[in-house]
Design a protein around this nucleic acid. Structure first.
Lengths: 131, 131
DNA sequence: CTTGACCTTCCAGTGACTGGAACCATTAGG
DNA sequence: CCTAATGGTTCCAGTCACTGGAAGGTCAAG
């Protein structure tokens, strides 16, 4: 397979695939004209990375998962550990965002939203203290 | 005030303050030795930006809010509009993150997490389909 | 006079791509 | 055989919002 076909089948843009090669996720062979040639195995890896990224794993986490994916000897505990850490992080982000949303929602409710200049949102941002 | 004092009082690092000057949020005067000199007014702006950033407004949104903050003629509706858009975006992020968390949590529950290599997490990432 | 804290500018790196330029290879059509 | 379209290659630069570091100027204290 050429890079275009792999891109289509994996749903990952060619640019990104080349980037993944750069950072050592893949090592496709080259043929005589210098084109990358992908095996099924590499396609599967790309799909794997794509899924992991869409679950919010960052590149280094993906690298770790890929290593575990390649390692037939590893126990599932290793993978579970990474996933658990990741869930914790996601939950931190969720609660941060919910706090932001709540603060803003209160401010929006308090704001007349008309032609008058008085605005609790601006006032709150101006004050050094929260609500 | 010199930049160090402003940094301390606003809680924004000097590096970041210089960056904010670069992108046109502030225009502190300079004195004879070339040091930046900040007025109270500039300190307030920095605090304003800091609060807005901590509520997740990005730089361009901050720029818009700053303009509204400076504009004594504007109606509160303009500000409210920006805030509302922002809440929508926050809510999108929250639901994305919750979906990630749920998927991962299911996978973690299904994973033995022991010395055996069988791992539903890896298996799921390997399959091209979700759940 | 020297030390140390504080200030200056400029350049480079972060993460994870993405866009563009300039160029080569392959194939189909006229 | 020439041309155009398509798809591949590399390399450089830009994104966002900073952050780190180097190299140097300034100022107050001892």
């Amino acid at each position: 397979m050429n890079i275009g076909e792999v891109a289509e089948r994996s749903g990952i843009p060619t640019k990104t695939i080349r980037y993944y090669e750069d950072i050592g996720f893949l090592h496709p062979k080259r043929n005589d004209n210098g084109y990358r040639v992908f095996e099924d195995n590499e396609l599967h890896k790309l799909i794997f990375i794509g899924r992991a990224r869409s679950l919010g794993f960052n590149i280094e986490e993906c690298r770790a998962l890929l290593a575990l994916y390649d390692d037939k000897e590893r126990g599932s505990a290793d993978v579970k550990q990474i996933a658990k850490e990741h869930v914790k992080e996601i939950e931190r982000k969720i609660s941060d965002l919910m706090a932001m949303r709540d603060t803003l929602t209160h401010l929006i409710e308090a704001c007349a939203g008309d032609h008058r200049p008085d605005c609790p949102i601006i006032d709150n941002l101006s004050d050094a203290k929260m609500n």
